[in-house]
């Protein structure tokens, strides 16, 4: 029983990360019908920003020890800023000119951006992973045999907070409604006076902010940042978005946790090295049998 609870907690931990990243895929897919292949790299850039920020505080001050809350908050905010900036630049340069191009073109462009960012960071770091300074005590809360790292608790709570904020943003704010309107019908949205270009940028920015923040927190959790770290979580998060029905915000959240928990449980049966395989099998299975997602309702194919 305790083992199962442990697996569940581990699943929720990583699932929260997937859920937060998945929102970026699902939002951008919603407005542009495009998979932003470079989204995982925004996450990676967030993780590096987090490293450089926290490492800077570590080297030049004692703030990491005295007020870790402040340095972590600054790292997260900077991670978001960097990711948002990058996302806006890539939208403007690599995607917007291709808005009317055939489907394959923006997809290939996005793959190009992903390769570019990953390899720039590979060179910038000389192919060396960056190890985060110790901000959180590496100790764990233990309840019976269940172990929970402090950073893990932080990660779980923070994912809930981000998901909640995003949900409120999408449901309650004018910009959120505009995003949903553009996702549904771009032309009619512009007849409402919605600036479609700006709304698409907002969408990219919101997704990127979440990915950047997730990168920082995930970096603290795994304690390292590497240029390739966005790749697998990126695909996993995409899987989560598909599991939840791509384009659906609550679906992406649920899909993230579902995937995280499935992975955690699968390690019990197949071992940790096949965890990635499990995600892909799930992805393929869902795409084949329920392409509209595990939780969503079947909708008529739209143009």
């Amino acid at each position: 029983m305790q083992e199962w609870i442990q697996l569940l907690i581990d699943g929720i931990t990583i699932g929260g990360v997937y859920a937060v990243i998945a929102l970026g895929y699902t939002l951008v897919y919603g407005v542009l019908r495009m998979i932003n292949f470079a989204h995982g790299e925004l996450f990676m850039m967030g993780a590096f920003t987090g490293y450089y920020t926290l490492n800077g505080f570590e080297k030049h001050s004692s703030l990491n020890d005295s007020v870790p809350v402040l340095t972590i908050a600054i790292a997260i905010v900077l991670g978001m800023v960097v990711a948002v900036t990058l996302a806006l630049v890539m939208e403007r340069i690599a995607y917007r000119p291709l808005r009317r191009a055939p489907r394959l073109a923006p997809l290939i462009s996005a793959i190009g951006v992903s390769i570019l960012l990953r390899n720039i960071m590979l060179r910038a770091t000389n192919a060396q992973g960056k190890v985060y300074p110790k901000v959180f005590p590496r100790t764990a809360v233990e309840i019976g045999e269940i172990r929970l790292l402090y950073v893990q608790i932080f990660l779980i709570v923070l994912s809930f907070v981000f998901l909640g904020l995003l949900y409120l943003f999408i449901q309650r704010t004018k910009a959120g409604v505009a995003i949903r309107a553009v996702a549904e019908d771009r032309d009619t949205a512009s007849l409402m006076g919605i600036n479609v270009d700006r709304t698409i940028m907002t969408t990219f920015a919101v997704g990127a902010a979440l990915a950047g923040a997730a990168g920082v927190v995930y970096g603290m959790f795994v304690t390292t940042a590497t240029s390739g770290m966005g790749f697998i979580p990126g695909i996993k998060a995409f899987t989560a978005a598909v599991l939840g029905g791509i384009g659906s915000v609550p679906g992406a959240m649920a899909g993230g946790y579902f995937l995280g928990i499935s992975e955690a449980i699968s390690t019990k049966f197949f071992g940790a090295q096949y965890k990635d395989v499990v995600a892909f099998v799930l992805l393929v299975a869902v795409l084949i049998f329920r392409p509209w997602g595990l939780f969503g309702k079947r909708e008529d194919k739209r143009a």
Binding site: A181, E184, D185, D187
Partner: peptide, 11 residues
């Protein structure tokens, strides 16, 4: 008010 109504069905 465009042809075919074009309301936002999910809103």
């Amino acid at each position: 008010a465009p042809e075919g109504r074009a309301i936002f069905g999910r809103l």
